[in-house]
Design a protein around this nucleic acid. Sequence first.
DNA 1: GAGTGGTCTAGACCACGGG
DNA 2: CCGTGGTCTAGACCACTCT
Lengths: 248, 248
Amino acid sequence: MFSGTIPAAASPADGVQYLELRNALAARIAAGEWRPGDRLPSERALQVSGQAARGTIREGLAQLEAEGLIYRKDRSGWYVSPAPIVYDPTRWEGFISYVEAQGRAPATETLDAMAIAADAFLAGVFGREAGAPLNLIRRRRYVDDRPVLVEYIVVDVALAPDLLRFSFDQSLTGILKSHYGLAVTRNKVEMQPCALTGREAEALGIKPGLPGLNVVRTSYDAQGRVVEFDREYWRHDAVKISVEARVR
Amino acid sequence: MFSGTIPAAASPADGVQYLELRNALAARIAAGEWRPGDRLPSERALQVSGQAARGTIREGLAQLEAEGLIYRKDRSGWYVSPAPIVYDPTRWEGFISYVEAQGRAPATETLDAMAIAADAFLAGVFGREAGAPLNLIRRRRYVDDRPVLVEYIVVDVALAPDLLRFSFDQSLTGILKSHYGLAVTRNKVEMQPCALTGREAEALGIKPGLPGLNVVRTSYDAQGRVVEFDREYWRHDAVKISVEARVR
DNA sequence: GAGTGGTCTAGACCACGGG
DNA sequence: CCGTGGTCTAGACCACTCT
């Protein structure tokens, strides 16, 4: 009744068909009938065995998806979710190292990298005037070949001139430190559960509206300058946040 | 294209009916046609004006719900969501003070308070043997009369004997500090987007499967003893996490 | 081309709320 | 009580993947 680290499932009998399907599938997943990455039977196959309309089947599957136990690949099928990555956004280590430290295979892909001018919001973030030159980098990151997040990074051109000549498929952290001497000493992190829509859903290859986690990080150096402003959109089933901090 | 603090909405025309309904409703909400807490037209009314099957209408509404723009009250209707509470789980202030600091009205209700014996998991958390006596408190917390979270707090009886004689509708923080001299100096916080199911969904009066945020906090005093182990289940649309931390 | 999920329709009955 | 959302059925056609 109170143990483990993950919320308990619904009770076995709910008097509701789609929850009973959900429970049946969850039990079979827990029993190891399918392993992470495996495909579930098709919706129409589940209809036959479960004797329900397809809409009802889909509601049960959507339930498991919301819980992060399964995910869908568009027009391909429903798959069992792998374990989430544990992520501490207050650490300045970089995606690659902590994913590897958890025995998983990270990958990074740069989608865009361009010069932009600060709008009112970004001007405020960086403490510059509107129109100040900034660089915007958009990346997609993978764990074990599955896209798990898309991120938008903004860097002040004044602090890192000519940044766009680099490749960002590796660690941006390393570039900022070794080529520009920029060391982060303080982070401000905001997180909010959200829905992944529009460009983010498209970049992750998912159906718009799937739950996600929006992480916004502002990184400062010892002089209080904003080194990096980073907005990440994570698949909700791919990440688990862990933060350790002294009480202030 | 890159501004503001909240993810951009989907594009106005998606070629998909339920997303077009979503966009139409989102625009009317943004325009202030309905204010936070207001009820939307009924599903059947939206059917008439929008010329679509009710299932399609419901899919559009579920989309907005996943995004946190609206929420439902069981068999009552769909309502515009109020602004989320900004919450810093590394601070040791207590719910009441930070909700009030944001100009909102907090309330706390104790659901259960009982003595339990440590299972293997909790024994590990508290560094005690299995079967050690603990107290478990279950509370529901409100913002502006809307239930936003349910929490399970475990306290070591050895550190806070006879704790159950107190009322927990006020600050537990204050009780632990003033009556037991327990001061928290360090927190470990884990957060994971989740679905609210079973007891949690019931306690919050929501439909099982709605997205939520699971926050697990372990609080230590200066001697490294576990003062409090707290598991919170938040409505996903009620909270925004903000953490500030030095880089380690 | 066969099979998959994605979308949509037009109904139905039910449980619960107090718009 | 009536209106609400909650659940469910039994179909249909489409866009996409390739299981």
